[in-house]
Simulated scan of single mutants.
Amino acid sequence: MLKRFIFTLVLISATLGPIPEAHAVNPWAAIIKAAIKKVVKAVDLMIQRRQNKVIKLQNAQKALENTMAKLKLEQIADWVKKQRDLYRKYYEELKKVKAVISYYFRIKEIAQKEAMIVEQYQKAWSLFQNDKHFTASELLYMQKVYTGIMEETTKNVDLLTLVVKSFTTQMSDVKRLEIIDQAAKQVDKVYDELSTFNNENKRLSLSRAKDEFDAKVVKELYGIE
Rank of each mutant, 00 (worst) to 15 (best):
V164D: 05
K219D: 02
R208F: 01
S195F: 07
D192C: 04
Q143K: 14
K175Q: 05
L177M: 09
Q75V: 08
E220D: 12
L140W: 02
Q75N: 15
L86R: 13
A183E: 06
L86F: 12
K216I: 06
I179G: 00
M116E: 10
L140G: 09
R176M: 06
A99G: 01
K38F: 07
F213I: 11
A209R: 02
L194H: 04
M46S: 15
V217Q: 07
V190H: 09
I6T: 09
E212H: 03
E119Q: 10
N59C: 01
G148W: 02
N26Y: 01
E200G: 10
G17Y: 04
K98T: 07
M68G: 06
D78R: 11
R176F: 00
W125Y: 13
Q112H: 04
V218Q: 14
S166D: 09
H23F: 14
Y141V: 06
V97L: 00
L64E: 14
K70W: 00
P27A: 04
L45Q: 13
A34S: 15
T15H: 02
A136K: 12
L2V: 08
D181A: 11
F167S: 00
A215K: 14
Y90H: 13
R88I: 00
K98P: 02
S207Y: 06
V174D: 05
L11T: 10
G148E: 11
M46V: 04
A34H: 09
K132P: 05
T67Q: 13
A77W: 07
L71D: 10
Q170A: 12
Q61D: 13
Q83V: 11
H23Q: 06
A63W: 04
K108T: 02
P27D: 03
R50T: 05
V25I: 13
Q122A: 10
A77P: 01
Q120Y: 04
M171Q: 12
R203C: 03
L159M: 09
T168R: 08
A111E: 02
F128Q: 03
L2R: 12
E21Y: 01
H133M: 08
G17L: 08
E138H: 10
K165Y: 04
V100I: 11
D44N: 15
D192I: 06
E225S: 11
L86D: 06
S126A: 04
R50N: 15
N66E: 15
T161P: 00
Q51C: 06
A99P: 02
V163S: 01
L94W: 01
S195A: 15
L71P: 10
P18V: 06
